[in-house]
């Protein structure tokens, strides 16, 4: 079954995931169309981050199905490299490689994993770092950058693989309020350029502004979803209402 761009680029169906006895995802279904920006919100421990990790095949699922561009992610015969070329991921804790400079962090994976031409990758890395407004910081090491700067390097690093989908796992949660803005700006630009983005976030204002769809998760299930206008104005489920009343 060949995938065509009018089908969902990421499609989760009845995903179940348990860590030991604790069931974290209890049948989550969610579709992302190409070019869409999806925000997943919800209280801590509701399985949002786990969902992203499952989409990137960092953790295996127990049952259900996840497809990316029509390809089953949890097929044991899956070429993980091909999947990870398509899906870029940015983490809450940035997870830059501290022994490499910003430029090297961006260049490493395309050069060593994809075996791309070094000179070409270097040009692309400079371009990407400029895009995330880190011109002049190419030679700095992660330890010498602020949290916001590190997070933007991490975004550039994920983009260097030329992914079709970007996953953002609470990327602003570890940052101080000053630097949150610069990271969000970068993500917004990406979304506006038509990159498919799947964000797990606590930034409600930001979600309302850029999301095409908002999903609310609680205790491993998707409780409610809808376009931001409807979602924030007229949430129906009591759990959603309670959550929103605490946040807003």
């Amino acid at each position: 079954m060949a995938w065509t761009p009018d089908q969902p680029i990421v499609s989760c169906k009845e995903v179940h995931k348990a860590f030991g006895a604790v069931e974290v995802l209890k049948g989550v279904s969610l579709d992302v169309a190409k070019g869409e920006t999806i925000c997943v919100i919800g209280p801590s421990g509701s399985g949002k981050s786990t969902l992203l990790r499952c989409i990137n095949a960092l953790v295996p699922i127990n049952s259900g199905s996840i497809t990316v561009e029509g390809q089953e992610v949890h097929d044991p015969k899956l070429d993980k490299l091909a999947l990870r070329r398509k899906v870029g991921m940015v983490f809450q804790q940035y997870n830059l490689f501290p022994h490499k400079s910003a430029l090297q962090n961006v260049m490493m994976a395309p050069v060593t994993v994809l075996k791309q031409d070094k000179a070409e990758v270097e040009q692309r890395a400079y371009r990407l770092l400029k895009k995330v407004r880190l011109e002049g910081k190419e030679q700095a090491y992660p330890g010498e950058l602020s949290g916001g700067q590190q997070q933007r390097v991490a975004i550039a690093r994920a983009l260097a693989m030329n992914p079709d989908v970007m996953l953002f796992d609470e990327v602003t949660a570890a940052l101080d309020p000053e630097t949150v803005k610069e990271v969000l700006l970068t993500i917004r630009e990406l979304a506006e350029e038509g990159m498919t983005c799947l964000l797990v976030t606590h930034e409600m204002g930001f979600a309302r502004e850029i999301a095409d769809m908002i999903y609310f998760t609680d205790r491993g299930v998707i409780v409610e979803s809808g376009p931001p206008k409807d979602f924030f104005a007229s949430a129906k489920d009591p759990r959603t209402k309670e959550f929103l009343s605490q946040i807003l």
């Binding site: 990790r53 990137n56 960092l58 993980k80 490299l81 990870r84 070329r85 899906v87 870029g88 991921m89 983490f91 804790q93 997870n95 830059l96 490689f97 490493m108 994976a109 060593t112 994993v113 994809l114 991490a154 690093r157 994920a158 693989m161």
Partner: peptide, 13 residues
């Protein structure tokens, strides 16, 4: 492990 995960998400085996 999060650093290892980051590497894996970039396609490192």
């Amino acid at each position: 492990t999060s650093t290892v995960e980051a590497a894996e998400s970039l396609g490192y085996n």
